[in-house]
Computed example of a mutant assay.
Amino acid sequence: MVNRVKQFFLYFNYKIDENDREFVYKYLNKEQIELFEKLKVYEQKHCINVARDLVNHCKELNINYNDELIVAALLHDIGKIECSLNLIDKSALVILDKISRGKIKKYEKNKKVDIYYNHPEKGYNILKKMGEKNRILFLVKNHHNNDISNDLELSILKECDENN
């Protein structure tokens, strides 16, 4: 929970700098970049941080990674473009989710609750319509799925997402 409070304050100051842009342009194609830029700046920065953390984590563990894994990290929250959550909304949902142990999910008719819980599926659908590769689709769709534990890349993506 302390990490979440820290994230909240960091989000207010997040900006995309030239190093961030270079990183994104290195891995995403034009169509993916256009989609990525529809995310709020703090969500873009979060995705960049997840992708960079993923690269570093793989290097530390001496695990081979490929561009598809980094693309998935950069686009893992792309479903959030369907309903924008401001920082207060997002923070409130994170806290309510923790306190209620996920019981607020029953209020999914609320668009903000829906996007909080279902952005992986929404992202999957957006990327599938673009003709994205199956591996990226799988990683985006399952980055909050705790029922899959035998996929190393997915596990690393989930860990890096949680830490950022």
Results as ranks from 00 to 15, higher is better:
66 N>S: 15
22 E>V: 05
137 L>T: 03
109 K>V: 10
68 E>G: 10
85 L>Q: 10
2 V>I: 15
140 V>F: 08
56 N>S: 14
89 D>W: 04
33 I>Q: 13
152 L>W: 00
29 N>F: 08
72 A>W: 06
99 I>M: 00
124 Y>G: 00
75 L>N: 08
39 L>H: 02
5 V>H: 12
60 E>G: 05
6 K>Q: 07
88 I>Q: 11
96 L>A: 09
104 I>W: 07
16 I>Y: 05
133 K>L: 07
140 V>E: 02
60 E>K: 15
34 E>C: 08
148 I>Q: 02
157 L>A: 06
137 L>N: 03
164 N>M: 02
124 Y>E: 03
21 R>M: 14
63 I>L: 15
161 D>R: 00
39 L>K: 01
113 V>T: 04
130 M>E: 11
117 Y>D: 08
98 K>M: 12
21 R>I: 15
44 Q>D: 11
9 F>H: 11
91 S>L: 10
128 K>L: 11
70 I>N: 12
5 V>A: 15
115 I>C: 10
103 K>R: 13
45 K>P: 08
37 E>P: 00
125 N>M: 09
109 K>W: 03
90 K>E: 11
24 V>S: 07
58 C>K: 08
53 D>F: 11
37 E>L: 13
127 L>C: 05
13 N>H: 09
55 V>I: 15
57 H>M: 08
95 I>K: 05
148 I>P: 01
101 R>C: 01
92 A>P: 02
125 N>R: 12
107 Y>E: 01
22 E>N: 13
114 D>H: 07
47 C>N: 15
74 L>I: 10
158 K>Q: 14
62 N>T: 09
49 N>C: 06
78 I>P: 03
105 K>N: 06
149 S>E: 13
10 L>M: 14
115 I>Q: 03
128 K>A: 14
60 E>V: 10
50 V>Y: 04
137 L>S: 04
83 C>A: 04
93 L>Q: 05
26 K>C: 14
44 Q>S: 03
94 V>K: 12
140 V>C: 04
10 L>D: 14
96 L>I: 02
39 L>C: 05
147 D>Q: 09
123 G>V: 05
99 I>D: 00
67 D>T: 10
126 I>V: 14
7 Q>K: 13
88 I>T: 13
160 C>S: 07
106 K>Q: 13
36 F>P: 06
101 R>F: 11
47 C>A: 15
136 I>T: 13
123 G>F: 05
28 L>H: 13
156 I>D: 01
110 N>Q: 05
89 D>Y: 09
111 K>G: 00
78 I>M: 02
151 D>R: 00
35 L>P: 01
22 E>G: 07
109 K>F: 11
27 Y>C: 08
61 L>R: 15
161 D>H: 06
8 F>S: 03
68 E>F: 10
6 K>R: 12
96 L>Y: 03
124 Y>C: 02
28 L>S: 14
